[in-house]
């Protein structure tokens, strides 16, 4: 039975599927363009000097962003020291004892906090650390990044811990292992590959943050590892170079961007690799 609309409907079907396919291409285009141009414009300037030297003043050739790379690593490490324990702890709390009203409130807060603009968190770190210390510092930047890191990490930790089979936990408890040891050495250990992946992804996101560092860690022309001093970071360096009027600095912005993408890429590659490693977790 051929209804008159049948071909029209078949056409609409094909048309809609094609449109959805076009949407995929539309999404793909900027991604490829960004990646390609960062590699193309960044690669020529990238070299050992660029990765290890201090920035050169305008007009002088050479120079690098070694201090910014070190700064990013320092700020992010410090942020991890603050953020990872709290985020993972909160996640375990949600998974193991989070079924009550209080747990529900914590879970919802974590979800909503994941959407708070990072620049607002920068203001918070400014008020909490910069104002009392009366100076910009790596610590202030790290506090901002840690605040950003905790809520999403708590949520992903919760999901990973919930995936651990209940039988493992019951087995340990049945053998008389105290609940806290069960949680730390059985449950968390089983979830470990997943947790490492989640942590690496969180670190990658933190390393890419710019806005909350602008007025917390600020910037620094020189090497610095002291947490109470202003510190350079790759992202802030990209921003400063990009908006500068000098062609050679703009060139360096691309090279910085390539360095940053490589850093984040290694982290997420590592995360993928660990997530897949020998049939634990899933």
């Amino acid at each position: 039975m051929t209804t008159p609309g049948r071909r029209w409907r078949a056409f609409k079907n094909g048309f809609a599927i094609t449109l959805c396919g076009v949407a995929v291409l539309v999404a793909l285009a900027p991604l490829l363009s960004v990646l390609w141009l960062v590699v193309k414009n960044g690669a020529p300037a990238l070299g050992l000097d660029f990765l290890t030297k201090l920035p050169a003043p305008v007009g002088e050739s050479g120079g690098g962003v070694g201090n910014a790379i070190l700064g990013t690593l320092a700020i992010v490490s410090l942020a991890c020291a603050i953020g990872l324990p709290i985020g993972i702890g909160a996640g375990v709390f949600l998974a193991e004892r989070g079924d009550g009203k209080f747990g529900g409130a914590v879970r919802f807060t974590a979800e909503v906090l994941s959407g708070v603009p990072s620049i607002v968190v920068g203001i918070v770190a400014y008020g909490l650390v910069v104002l009392p210390m009366k100076r910009f510092s790596a610590l202030a930047g790290a506090v901002a990044l840690a605040l950003l890191m905790v809520p999403p990490l708590a949520r992903s930790t919760e999901e990973l811990v919930r995936l651990v089979p209940r039988a493992l936990r019951e087995g340990a408890l049945a053998l008389g292992v105290p609940a806290w040891k069960t949680s730390l050495f059985i449950v968390l250990r089983t979830a470990r590959p997943g947790l490492i992946t989640a942590a690496l992804l969180a670190i990658g996101r933190a390393a890419g943050e710019t806005a909350p560092l602008l007025f917390t860690a600020l910037n620094n022309q020189y090497w610095n590892v002291r947490p109470d001093q202003p510190t350079a970071s790759l992202t802030v360096q990209i921003f400063n170079y990009a908006i500068s009027p000098y062609e050679e600095w703009r060139q360096k912005a691309w090279a910085c961007a390539l360095t940053l993408l490589l850093l984040i890429g290694f982290l997420s590659l590592g995360a993928r690799f660990l997530a897949r490693s020998p049939g634990e977790a899933r």
Binding site: I86, I88, G89, A105, A110, L113, G127, L147, P151
Partner: peptide, 22 residues
């Protein structure tokens, strides 16, 4: 664990209070 959970709520309060205060 509970302290870490409370920390999440605290972060929310901290953001609101510090921004409003500044």
């Amino acid at each position: 664990l509970a302290a870490a959970g409370i920390a999440i709520l605290l972060v929310a309060l901290l953001i609101a209070a510090t921004t409003a205060n500044t």
